[in-house]
């Protein structure tokens, strides 16, 4: 399969001292479900944001859909961003607006500035929004204000906002870090489903190693801004976990053997 995303020798430096990423290399194929795991502050969020240029990488090249993202001008960058959906740990919805309005926000990038600013959406866009919301099980809440929803429901609205973009790829920045286990499972199932049935590439930052191993086609481990593991969940060993999380990994609460067995 041809890679949809290629990250070659990417580094990111904040100021003079802190190096968030150093020489990161990996590629992701079309439709793949890839998890990025690593300790807090390892550079997972920075890496994700470099891909859609919410943060500008210092060196290297990022090739998405045969375009070098790093060299794009403002207008082309916007075009690329419309093809990449993004969801966040804190959902980042506009709390005072309704679920359907928040969902339709995903279309803003494709609309003219004035139509988008005034919130004028055509029937087709609205129908698509309702369709996506019903597959995510939110159809009875479409006129509710976003702040009246539970965390899991908010994250589903976040997914709907990304899906309405018709993205080639979804970037998920710790989508389940603020959720209880049940809601987290619902969200991960939806993400997996998006990857399998719609063929959308999904790139997820995760804190939960067991979740990453269970859902992903491939796992990328990052520590101190460097890729220290890149392989399928089956290939991961205790040593790899230790290299990703450092020496304390001995005491981590999960058991790899158990996960592989299930």
């Amino acid at each position: 399969m041809t890679p949809l995303l290629e990250v070659n020798h990417v580094s990111k430096q904040f100021g003079n001292e802190t190096k968030a990423l150093s020489d990161v290399n990996f590629s992701v194929s079309e439709g793949e479900f890839v998890s990025i795991i690593g300790p807090s502050g390892a550079g997972k969020s920075t890496l994700l944001r470099c891909i859609n240029r919410m943060i500008d990488a210092s060196n290297g090249e990022i090739i998405f859909d045969n375009m070098n993202v790093m060299n794009l001008k403002k207008k082309e960058l916007k075009m690329v961003r419309t093809k990449i959906g993004m969801i966040f740990q804190h959902y980042n919805l506009v709390n005072r607006l309704s679920v359907i309005e928040n969902t339709l926000h995903g279309n803003l990038g494709k609309k003219s500035t004035i139509a988008g600013a005034l919130g004028l959406y055509n029937q087709e866009e609205k129908e698509q929004a309702v369709k996506i919301l019903s597959t995510l099980g939110l159809v009875e809440h479409i006129y509710k204000r976003a702040d009246q929803l539970s965390g899991g429901q908010k994250q589903r609205v976040g997914i709907a906002r990304a899906l309405i973009q018709n993205p080639r790829m979804m970037l998920c920045d710790e989508p389940i870090a603020s959720l209880d286990p049940n809601s987290a499972k619902v969200i991960m199932d939806h993400l997996r489903n998006i990857s399998t049935t719609m063929g959308i590439t999904v790139l997820v930052n995760l804190h939960q190693v067991d979740v990453a191993l269970k859902y992903s086609d491939r796992v990328i481990g990052i520590n101190h801004g460097q890729v220290v593991f890149n392989g399928t969940p089956k290939d991961i060993t205790k040593d790899d976990i230790q290299r990703i999380y450092g020496s304390e990994a001995e005491d981590l609460i999960f058991d790899i053997g158990g996960i592989h067995a299930s």
Binding site: N52, V80, R81, V94, H105, G109, G116, A117, G158
Partner: peptide
């Protein structure tokens, strides 16, 4: 984060102002 989310979907400055 709200501003970031809309920027990430390709929305323009004025769209973010009036929609978020």
């Amino acid at each position: 984060g709200v501003i970031e989310a809309l920027q990430a979907s390709g929305a323009s400055f004025w769209q973010i102002i009036f929609q978020a």
